[in-house]
Write a protein that binds this DNA or RNA. Structure first.
Lengths: 204, 204
DNA sequence: GATAAAAATCGACATCATGTAGAGTTTGAG
DNA sequence: CTCAAACTCTACATGATGTCGATTTTTATC
């Protein structure tokens, strides 16, 4: 390992607590799938992570904070992926690519997305996180619509408002479909893509 | 009072309990607006209705049952209104009428609709209620699309699947807009109507 | 209007999850 | 080795839920 100065960051790190923290989040995700948010108790999470309730409160101040951290972790992953995506100029390709990416994301993280949506109202931090995420999508959809010739602007029949409605359509459709099966998610995606295309005036 | 046979139904009725039950539901609705579902406690509801917790449990088995009853009451009203609606043959008119009616419903009952949606996942009865309501909408939208010339069927680009996606678009868009203001709800409605029209191939 | 059954109400209790506090143990840098 | 920070635990306080049995009020009927 030549020239391997740990410098200042990247120390011996990986404190024991970091492992625990990850274990807590992982357990939380698993339990969310098994019993759902309400049924899942702080004791359950602690037990699953191999510690006691008291120890868990050292890491997180409440059940809500745990879930918020889980959502943050997942959503951050989504943001990175979004940034890394190459933009296409041709609207039809851009739409197809976006839908493909969205299906992947929901296949991987559907559970966390759904709980994020469910808790958006009651947990402000999660609401903020999800709202920001939706904002990214809306911006992206708006851009595609404009490039396809839809008039820019925020009036009801202009790009921005349409993008918002399309975003909610996709969110909700995926929310339901991802609860059922991958096939349904794929089909739902096709339907959404079709409506998006038609709305952009790109009828084949 | 000549010939006034109360017959069998329509008795002296209106038991005291019926009044209380309504008071409980009304209080619940008010509290839902004030503090939201989580913050609202069974004690709060009882107090608002002028009884003690113990008495409330004579009427409803749990907080969830109270809210379920509230949702049922509201949704039943919606169903009646739907049945009573005259059907139009001309798709454009049918769409405009449907959106107008939907705006009215959300203006009146937006709060209850939103809580119904929020609790659909955790309270199965409410989920069932809301899912049936969505079903009505989807059926209606499907009919309009088919009359407008969209191919019938459940494949991704056929009427049934499109109707489902459009229904979720409207639900989610109204969910958000109804939290903001009547103006926004009206604008959101215009946008949804436009996308619906375009999807039906009825571009002006 | 007296009366008995049904309807409605109450206060006390048991339970359970949450979050807090403080004491004790492990870990790692110097 | 030693001390401080990181970590963990048990015990406790709180607050909401839901249950129970006793008691009072309504209501239908004679």
């Amino acid at each position: 390992m030549p020239g391997n100065h740990p410098a200042r960051s990247r120390r011996t790190t990986e404190r024991k607590g970091d492992v625990r923290e990850r274990a807590i989040l992982d357990t939380c995700e698993a339990l969310l799938a098994q019993k759902g948010y309400d049924a899942m108790t702080v004791g359950d999470i602690a037990q699953g992570a191999g510690i006691t309730r008291g120890a868990l409160y050292f890491y997180f101040g409440s059940k809500q904070e745990v879930v918020t951290a889980l959502v943050a972790r997942t959503v951050e992953h989504l943001w990175e992926r979004s940034r890394a995506t190459a933009e296409t100029d041709e609207p039809r390709q851009a739409i197809a690519a976006a839908m493909r990416r969205t299906v992947e994301l929901w296949n991987e993280h559907g559970l966390v997305f759904r709980t994020a949506i469910d808790l958006s109202l009651t947990v402000p931090e999660i609401g903020e996180l999800w709202s920001r995420t939706a904002g990214l999508f809306i911006t992206a959809i708006t851009a595609v619509l404009e490039r396809a010739g839809i008039q820019a602007g925020t009036e009801p029949e202009q790009a921005s408002a349409m993008a918002r409605a399309l975003c909610w359509m996709i969110e909700r459709t995926f929310y339901h479909a991802s609860q059922e099966s991958r096939e349904n998610l794929q089909k739902a995606s096709s339907t959404c893509e079709h409506i998006w295309l038609v709305s952009a005036g790109l009828t084949a």
